[in-house]
């Protein structure tokens, strides 16, 4: 009974691992297949791997440019989100003031709102301001979901810093700005890093805004990868290689913050 229980447990866990990794594995496998191997019916599981797909995408200036755009946009929007969000989080963690819960509500509804709601007016506004297909418009619009995440995680982090430290600094005559810079920011650095990683992941993964607001110059990696999905003879290997290159960095980042994944995705409602 106990042995079979253990076996069942191990088997169950193994099924979980296979279930979660299979689509990912299948993409990576396809990225090393020749077109003929991908199009084989029934699908082949054992094949001679080729690097040709990767050579092709890394020789494609469109793909390289798009990855560069994605890097630039995700990094810039993350930096801005932390720059703007950390002080706001400090105020939310340390002060009571009127309208605080409304502010919270606002941050949270930003997390919930469908991008299509803002994509329509932002498209028109960007068109009027000649900002379509620029990096800046994506950097700014991504703040609508990054700022709430950064504010939430940092507020939580600031709240966990003992107030005694602050009292001591106050007695030394430090003002709130100094206290924020010299005490809170360094002590909350791990939490700020986690929030920055989340912000980067969400920005890197975003498709709808990027699809609507860019044409060529500012196209991000997901847009370019999906743009290969048209025409008759789809370059499957190339598409899957691009998919792998896009997903790999964020997967590594996500593994770094895996312990905080639930907090990041629920805005901390469950801890």
């Amino acid at each position: 009974m106990r042995v079979s229980g253990k076996l069942f447990h191990a088997l169950g866990l193994a099924v979980v691992v296979v279930f979660t990794l299979f689509p990912f594995f299948w993409m990576v496998a396809a990225s090393f297949k020749t077109q003929a191997d991908i199009l084989a019916t029934p699908p082949v599981w054992f094949f001679t791997p080729t690097l040709q797909n990767y050579q092709e995408i890394f020789a494609d200036s469109k793909v390289i440019g798009a990855i560069g755009n994605s890097l630039l946009i995700a990094t810039a929007t993350t930096a801005l989100a932390v720059l703007l969000g950390a002080p706001a989080a400090f105020a939310l963690a340390r002060y009571e003031f009127r309208g605080k819960s409304d502010l919270w509500f606002w941050f949270i509804s930003n997390r919930m709102t469908s991008p299509i709601v803002l994509a329509l007016p932002v498209y028109l506004l960007a068109m009027q301001a000649n900002l379509l297909d620029t990096h800046i418009v994506l950097i700014l619009i991504y703040l609508t979901f990054n700022l709430p995440i950064v504010v939430w995680i940092c507020t939580d982090q600031f709240k966990s810093i003992p107030a005694d430290l602050e009292q001591a600094a106050r007695l030394d005559g430090a003002d709130q700005f100094t206290i924020f810079r010299k005490i809170y920011l360094p002590l909350a650095a791990p939490g700020i890093a986690v929030s920055a990683i989340f912000s980067f992941i969400f920005s890197w993964n975003e498709l709808l805004y990027a699809l609507v607001l860019t044409r060529r110059a500012a196209q991000t990696a997901p847009v370019v990868a999906t743009s290969f999905m048209s025409g008759y003879e789809l370059p499957w290997g190339k598409i899957m290689a691009a998919g792998t290159v896009i997903v790999l960095p964020v997967t590594i980042f996500a593994l770094l913050v895996s312990r905080h994944m639930v907090r990041g995705l629920t805005m901390g409602a469950t801890k």
């Binding site: 979980v16 990794l21 990868a225 896009i246 997903v247 593994l255």
Partner: peptide, 30 residues
């Protein structure tokens, strides 16, 4: 129980969550 296998399963759960949603669509097409 099952320390190692459990940690592995726990970590792999993060992979689908981080996968770019558009790429999930590409994988679906395949």
């Amino acid at each position: 129980g099952m320390g190692m296998l459990k940690s592995l399963a726990r970590v792999t759960l993060v992979v689908p969550l981080a996968t770019t949603y558009a790429v999930v669509g590409l994988i679906g097409r395949l």
